[in-house]
Simulated assay, not measured.
Amino acid sequence: MPSLEDRRGRGGSGQLSAPRLRNDTPERAGLDPEELRLLVRDVHDLTTGEPPWAPGAVVVAGRGPVIAVEEAAGWAVRYARHNPETGRGVELPRLARVPMTVDTPFDLASLTKLFTSVAAVQQIERGTLGIDARVGAYLPDFRAVREYGITVRQLLTHTSGLPPELPLYDCPDDTARLEMLRGEAPVREPGSSYLYSDLNMLILQHLLERLTGRTLDVLVHDGITRPLGMTSTRFDPCPGAAATEDQRRPWAKVDRGMLRGVVHDENAWALGGVAGHAGLFSTGRDLAVFCRTLLAGGSYGPARVLGPDFVELMLTPPGLGFAVDQPWFMGELAGRGAAGHTGFTGTSLVLDPATDTFLVLLTNRVHPHRGVPDSRPRAGAATRVGRAVRGA
């Protein structure tokens, strides 16, 4: 069980500190070793069917400053292409495949939204951005956003009413893409209901870049990943990453072939790989640091990326950037304020402030072909972690 000093984040001198993650036993983390053994078994099982749920996976789970599980399974690269006639992947010879390791980077897809959201809340904390300010005050050239009075909070909570996406990948150039984004009107009354939309984070990206004079990749690097020591987290490209899709029409929106180390999302690709909604690559270990930082109130080691009040603001329902208490991917961790997100490529993370636990599950589920959405394995993994917490 973590010591009282570990759980509170206090050193022997009584000064506030934020212990770094360390690998240790489930018992030292206050977690049931049998449930975590079953978690590891379940993750390996995901990669062994014919076809597997995902060719490869990495799982990292822990409590407090202790990583109790860090495991890789399956293949980072297994297939040469997708065969639409058989509906199956064409496998590479075994010696040509690339095994998954705990250090393999993954295309995070929509987990990128969490980093864009943190970058925005950093500006809110500094007083340079108003959470209930109208976006049009910062981006007057974004006509529809200005006309409908969409606010920063509505972008962060997906209540702007903007449609889920736009075919920016079909535009001939950046000028046309920007013009399409500037003119897109809400399909619902802003503030009236939840409608998940990539456009929220794309517009937030433009706001942040206009406000700070720095590009999003620089904001994320300088404000989040560099101070936290997340050296394996970066925007596209990322050589050595797990492969994703054999991206071809009609199942995809563009024809790009087998993707590895370049962003899967078609709009993020069209935007040059740096986008508010997708484009980041990272590893399980780096994302565990990100989770631990938020669970510790915004600090990790000597670094502080947010104050505790602003972390609480992000994780309190309905969540800013984060989804809160969603059983469809959080399983039995949902219900007490667990927060997290999923990514289309097969990625997810969940952190539970009530029990000081976290789970990172990264897979290349779309390799070699996107299939029917299925988050039951994500929910199952989170349930294993929830059941592993002793005395919760």
Rank of each mutant, 00 (worst) to 15 (best):
T244N: 02
E245Q: 14
D246V: 03
D246E: 11
Q247I: 13
W251N: 14
W251H: 15
R256K: 12
M258Y: 14
R260H: 11
G261Q: 12
G261Y: 13
H264W: 10
A268W: 08
W269R: 05
A270Q: 05
L271H: 08
G272N: 11
G272R: 08
V274D: 05
A275I: 04
A278T: 10
L280K: 12
S282P: 09
G284C: 11
G284T: 14
D286W: 09
L287K: 06
C291I: 07
R292P: 00
T293L: 10
L294K: 10
G297F: 01
G298Q: 03
G301P: 07
G301L: 06
A303S: 15
A303D: 13
P308E: 03
P308F: 08
P308K: 07
V311N: 00
E312N: 14
E312I: 00
L315E: 03
P318F: 08
G319I: 07
G319H: 08
L320S: 02
L320N: 01
Q326G: 01
F329G: 00
F329V: 02
G331L: 06
A334E: 02
A334I: 01
A339Y: 00
G340P: 02
H341T: 00
T342P: 06
T342F: 05
T345H: 11
V350Y: 07
A354H: 13
T355P: 01
F358E: 01
L362W: 04
T363G: 07
R365E: 12
R365I: 04
V366K: 00
H369P: 00
R370H: 10
R370V: 14
R376G: 12
